[in-house]
C-alpha cells in the first residue's frame, strides 16, 4: 500500500506466480486478472482476460528481482525495466509474446526483445 507506482507484491509462496512475457513483472494470475500488467496493460490487455493472461504470462521464469528503485538501479536498467513500476521482476522469462503482440510491437516500431535471453547484443 505504501507506494503508488508499485505493482502488487505477491506472496512469495504463492503457487500461481506468473511473469509477464513482455516486461517480466511477476504477479499472481489473480492480480494479472484484476489489474492487468501495470507496465504493458495497454498493449497486452490482460485485465479480466484469463486467456490472454495465459498466453502473455508464464509460470516458467528464473530468478526474481525486487526492483525497489527502478530509476537508479543498474539491474533494472540492464533488465530494461527501469521505466516500469516498482515490483518483482523475473530475470529470465521463458517464451515469447503471442504473434499478434509481436506484430503490434513491430507496427509501432518497437523492437521486441524476448526475455528468454535468446538475443544478447
Amino acid at each position: 500500500m505504501s507506494d503508488p507506482v508499485s505493482a502488487i507484491i505477491p506472496q512469495s509462496k504463492s503457487r500461481h506466480l506468473r511473469s509477464c512475457l513482455l516486461c517480466s513483472l511477476i504477479q499472481t494470475s489473480n492480480d494479472f486478472r484484476s489489474i492487468g500488467c501495470p507496465n504493458c496493460e495497454e498493449i497486452l490487455q490482460l485485465k479480466d482476460n484469463p486467456d490472454r493472461i495465459l498466453s502473455c504470462t508464464t509460470a516458467s521464469f528464473d530468478g526474481v528481482i525486487a526492483v525497489i528503485d527502478p530509476e537508479t538501479s543498474w539491474v533494472a536498467r540492464w533488465q530494461r525495466t527501469a521505466k516500469y513500476a516498482r515490483g518483482m521482476y523475473a530475470v529470465r522469462v521463458k517464451g515469447r509474446v503471442p504473434e499478434d503482440v509481436e506484430a503490434e510491437l513491430e507496427s509501432r516500431g518497437i523492437k521486441y526483445r524476448p526475455r528468454d535471453q535468446s538475443d544478447q547484443d
Binding site: 495497454e42 538501479s73 543498474w74 530494461r80 521505466k83 523492437k111
Partner: peptide, 21 residues
C-alpha cells in the same frame, strides 16, 4: 501506451559503470 522503452539500446551499452551502485 507501451513504448518498449530502451529496447533499441544494445545490451552491451547497458553494462554497469563505476557510477552505478
Amino acid at each position: 501506451r507501451f513504448t518498449g522503452d530502451m529496447n533499441e539500446i544494445p545490451q552491451r551499452l547497458l553494462m554497469p559503470s563505476v557510477h552505478d551502485a
